[in-house]
């Protein structure tokens, strides 16, 4: 049993505070549902992460915020689950892709150059974009609108900040497959943000 310092004793006490635990669980669920696209799997993984946090609260060093530490446990559980799921899905499901392929293809003409109507419009600089609260709601909606596999690799790369090699290893992907998935994710997210935020189309996505 590791020796309890003041910081980890306080940390484990927080997990017995009903209000704190309820709020933390809701935040973890939101994050996990976004990553896994499944409420039930998110419930399971959040439960596992909380149990693990409780069991290992003695090892919390206090170097980071307690929530950050719990979320790091959750992220590891999510990556493990994604890895398990990946072994069960077929390659054809991984590239559920006629729709993906078509949506990227539609941006270009037969010679591989931009369709006139699809050429990227000028954006504000990112700092100006992120100052507007509405922007994040639309970013959230566009992210949720990505095909599941695209959203999965995009978030592992850009938000959990795994390297390409780590993602390939965890999801059993080749680097060229990952590059294609990342390209489709970015192209679709770029297009969605441009249409829904910059051009202010109806955001029913």
């Amino acid at each position: 049993m590791p020796e309890m310092t003041t910081s980890n004793a306080n940390a484990s006490q927080q997990l017995y505070n009903d209000d704190f635990l309820l709020e933390l669980r809701q935040q973890m669920m939101k994050f996990a549902v976004l990553q896994l696209s499944s409420f039930h799997q998110a419930e399971d993984v959040v439960q596992e992460a909380l149990v693990s946090a409780l069991q290992h609260s003695g090892s919390f060093s206090g170097r980071s915020a307690f929530k950050t530490w719990v979320f790091a446990i959750l992220k590891n559980k999510i990556v493990d689950l994604i890895r398990q799921k990946q072994r069960l899905v077929s390659m054809s499901e991984l590239f559920d892709t006629e729709e993906n392929e078509r949506s990227v293809d539609e941006l270009f003409d037969a010679s591989g150059h931009w369709q006139k109507s699809e050429r990227p419009k000028a954006w504000l600089n990112p700092e100006e974009m992120m100052e507007q609260q509405d922007f994040w709601m639309i970013f959230d909606a566009c992210l949720n609108h990505l095909p599941a596999k695209c959203a999965q690799v995009f978030m592992l790369r850009e938000m959990i900040e795994l390297s390409s090699d780590e993602i390939c290893e965890k999801l059993d992907l080749s680097i060229s497959n990952l590059n294609v998935l990342m390209y489709r994710s970015r192209a679709r997210l770029r297009e969605c943000l441009e249409n829904k935020w910059l051009l202010q189309e109806d955001c029913s996505c």
Partner: peptide, 27 residues
Amino acid sequence: PCRRFGKQMKSLSLLSKQYKKFDEGQK
């Protein structure tokens, strides 16, 4: 158009990292 696309790829990466902070900030 490709020059713009390239700038937007950099912006997307930056926005994604800020989105994570925004999302965690709500916690």
